[in-house]
Structure formats: C-alpha cells, structure tokens
Design a protein around this nucleic acid. Structure first.
Lengths: 144, 144
DNA sequence: ATGCAAGTTCAAGCCGACTTGAGGTCAAGA
DNA sequence: TCTTGACCTCAAGTCGGCTTGAACTTGCAT
C-alpha cells in the first residue's frame, strides 16, 4: 500500500502518517521509488496507537510500548496504572457532569445563589477538581 | 489583596492571573501604585473558571459565559450540551479503562492474540474511539 | 535618603501533535 | 518520450495555555 491507501483506510492524514514514522511509531516496509510502502500490519498498529491516544498515552509513551523489536510488547503494569488514572478522571468528570446538569436545571436566579452550586464551587476551589479534558479529536475522517 | 495573595489563596501563579486578566477572565479592582489590587470576589471567579476548565470549556468559552456585565450569567443550554458531551466522554473512557484492565490481566502471550483485545482494537479502528484526554493539571499548588 | 522585595510590562519561548508550503523526484499511462 | 500527479523532504507555522526573562517602577522599612 502506498501512503494514500493507508490514509484512506485508517482515516489518518498522510502528513500524520509521515510524522508517526518519523517518531518511530510506525515503519514503512520499504520504498517504491521515493514512495513509502506499507504492509497491512500498519493498520493494526495504527489502531493500537489510536487506542493508546484515546487512553491518554502520549505519542512518546506509545512509542515506548512498542518495544524496540517492533511488536507490541505492552507493559501490563503501565496499563493498570493508566486504567487507575482513567478511573480517577472518570470520577471527576462524573462529578463535573452532575454539577453542570444541576446548574443547568437549578432555578436560582444566578448560579451563585444556589447552595448546591456553591458547594460544587467550594469543592472545586479546595483542590478536588483538576481533570482538564480535551475536546474529542476529529477521529477517523475517511474522506474529508 | 495584591496578586501574591490571590495566587496563594487560589493556587494559581501570578503569571496566570495576569494572563487571565489580559484575557478578560478576571478583573483587578484597581491599582495600588503599579500593583493590581483584587477583591475577594476574584477567588470565587477563579473557582468558577477552574470548574469551567475542568469541564472542558476553553478560556474563550469561559470568558463568554461571564456576560459582558461581569457577573456569571451562564447559559444553561450550553451547560446541558457540555454535560452531554461529558457523558459521552465518560462512556468512552470507561470502555477504554475496561479495555486496559483486560489487557493488563489477559494471559495471551501478546495482546494481539487475545480475542477480547482484538475486539477492542477493531472497535477502536471502526471509529468508536476518539476521546483524547489530558493529564490532570497540577491543580492548586499552594506554596510550590 | 536609600535599598530592596515585590510588583510591573512586553516580547518571546515552550509543549505536543500536527499541518502547511515550497520546491524536488519519480513511475506509469498516453 | 513526455507529461502528470502522487509522492517526497525540510523548514516553518499553528493552537491553547501558559511561563520566562529582561528591564523597569514602587511602596515601605530602615
């Protein structure tokens, strides 16, 4: 496959694929002239990368997970750590969501007058809150 | 209060406070010489900002929530939208966490040989996954 | 009167994850 | 053979949210 096909099949733009290769996240199986050729395996790898990203691993972390030999040799302990981290994030986000929903429904003229909202505020102020989340990324964009 | 006190009480560094002021997120109540003076209300506002950030609003979005008049006049519909968004994120993260935990526990020699893992991969590949999360921020760091 | 810590401004830098643009190369179809 | 268009490289730009550094000004204590 050349890069365009990988791009099409994975939904990842060529520029990103080149970037990933440069970072050592994926490897091309050779060149046809100038052009990178990829084997089908790269798609699986890209899926794995996608999962890793979604789980909050940085590209560098992901690169380390694929041991030098190339195949995914994932550190199970790291996974557990990440899962726990995710758990904490989820709890925070759940609290946030509840807070938002309440604020949206609350009849107090301004949120500041609502005791429940003030409680959330206070909780947030006293260090409980901290999960900064990001907008969902574009995700697979087959033919943009 | 001058900036150092606000910083201390909110856990937000002075540089960030100045940045927030520049962005219109907070306002100083005047100057004492060169020095910004802040009223206690700014702490509440900062807490609100913290909540907004934690809920995934950008600084610009937050700035808009505080209507031009200054007091938090939050669009309830936006809150609901954001809460729903948060809900979706939470669901994805939960799935991720389960996947990670399974991968960590799974006995297959490599994850690629585990049917469950491959199922996750496939799900991810086919567009389900996309929540990019960020590491939790430093959060209130009272006296660094 | 003077020293100095704590403030100030402004411009520039940093981070991660990419994207964009200019200019170059090459294989395959007409 | 020649054109074409898909690919290439490399440098630089983008974005959000800050931080850092240099050079400067103040209020207050000595």
């Amino acid at each position: 496959m050349d890069i365009a096909e990988v791009s099409e099949r994975s939904g990842i733009p060529p520029s990103t694929l080149r970037y990933y290769e440069e970072k050592g996240l994926i490897a091309s199986s050779g060149r046809h002239g100038l052009r990178r050729q990829f084997s089908a395996a790269v798609l699986e790898r890209l899926a794995l990368i996608g999962i890793g990203r979604a789980a909050g691993f940085s590209l560098d972390e992901i690169a380390q997970m694929f041991a030098p030999d190339g195949r995914p040799h994932i550190d199970r302990q790291k996974l557990t750590v990440k899962a726990d981290e995710l758990d904490r994030t989820i709890r925070k986000l759940s609290a946030m969501r509840d807070g938002l929903r309440h604020a949206a429904a609350c009849k107090a003229p301004t949120h500041m007058e609502c005791p429940k909202f003030r409680r959330i505020l206070k909780a947030a102020a006293s260090g409980g809150v901290g999960a900064r989340i990001k907008k969902a990324p574009p995700g697979p964009r087959a033919t943009p």
